[in-house]
Amino acid sequence: MKILITGFNPFGEESINPAFEAVKLLPETIEAAQIVKLEIPTEFKKAGKVLQEGIEINQPNVVVCIGQAGGRSAITPEKVAINLMDGRIPDNAGYQPFDTPVQEDGPTAYFSSLPVKAMVEAIREDGIPSFLSYTAGTYVCNYLMYELLYLIDHQYPQIKGGFIHVPFMTEQVVNKPNGTPSMDLETIAKGLEKAIEAIVKNDEDIQLHMGETH
């Protein structure tokens, strides 16, 4: 099995992005699966093109995209991506879409084809906070997850794919307001490794309630 793992470069006012920094710490093989790492630009239009090029070059069985969710306190596999781009801030190319579809001919939403509940459980079993998320936002992270699942739907039906959000790394919150959640980089990387182990071990997701009441 070959797994393509992507992580974004820094964006906004940040000089570092824990997404790709954690990806770089992953071993070259996990549960006998070959790990291929790819940095993705935090740009709405370019991100999808770089992702597709990475898929075409590497021909993976699974694609997992990683992004930063500053303000979250846990590693959060995403369940759903929506067909919407609405940038709170411009991306790294200066583009700031407003209520724009990712794909004009795409469905309203796509669900991850990864065993997301098994991933959450595997991360938690290693003593690392993790929750299942039902919103990937409307910025480049959601865009890339939707674009990935659109590509799978239209061109790569043999591939499974999805997205994981990670918190700020500890160094990023030194000058942020007191109480801003963070996680050390090694713990983030370990959590991602456990999530990938769950992907390799679970062809189907586990049956466990992880819904939200709000």
Rank of each mutant, 00 (worst) to 15 (best):
N175E: 15
H214T: 14
E121D: 15
V64Y: 00
V23D: 03
C65Y: 05
N178K: 15
T170Y: 07
M119H: 03
V173F: 02
A32S: 08
A69F: 09
M210V: 09
N142T: 05
T100C: 12
N202G: 03
E171T: 15
D91P: 05
S133F: 03
K194H: 13
P97T: 12
E121V: 15
F98E: 14
P27R: 02
K2E: 10
H214V: 14
V102Q: 07
G191Q: 04
N92R: 10
G70W: 05
F8D: 05
A93M: 11
V200P: 05
L4Y: 00
E14T: 07
E204I: 14
Y156A: 05
A33G: 12
G54T: 13
T135R: 04
I123C: 03
E121C: 10
S130L: 08
P18C: 09
R72Y: 01
Y150Q: 11
E14Y: 10
E121F: 13
T213M: 14
L26P: 04
V63Q: 05
L4E: 00
I40A: 06
L84M: 07
N178H: 12
S113C: 09
V62M: 07
I159G: 03
G211T: 11
E193T: 10
G162K: 06
D205F: 10
M183H: 11
K49M: 15
R72A: 01
G87T: 08
K37T: 06
D203I: 13
N92H: 10
T187A: 06
D105P: 08
L192Y: 04
F8P: 01
N175L: 07
E78Y: 04
F168G: 00
E147K: 08
F98H: 15
M169N: 11
T170D: 13
V64M: 06
T76I: 12
D126E: 14
F98W: 11
G70Q: 06
L4Q: 00
K117I: 13
G137Y: 00
S112F: 15
A74I: 12
Q158T: 09
M210P: 11
A189Y: 02
D126S: 14
C141Y: 02
G162S: 13
L38A: 11
L26A: 05
G70E: 04
S113W: 09
P181K: 12
Y143Q: 08
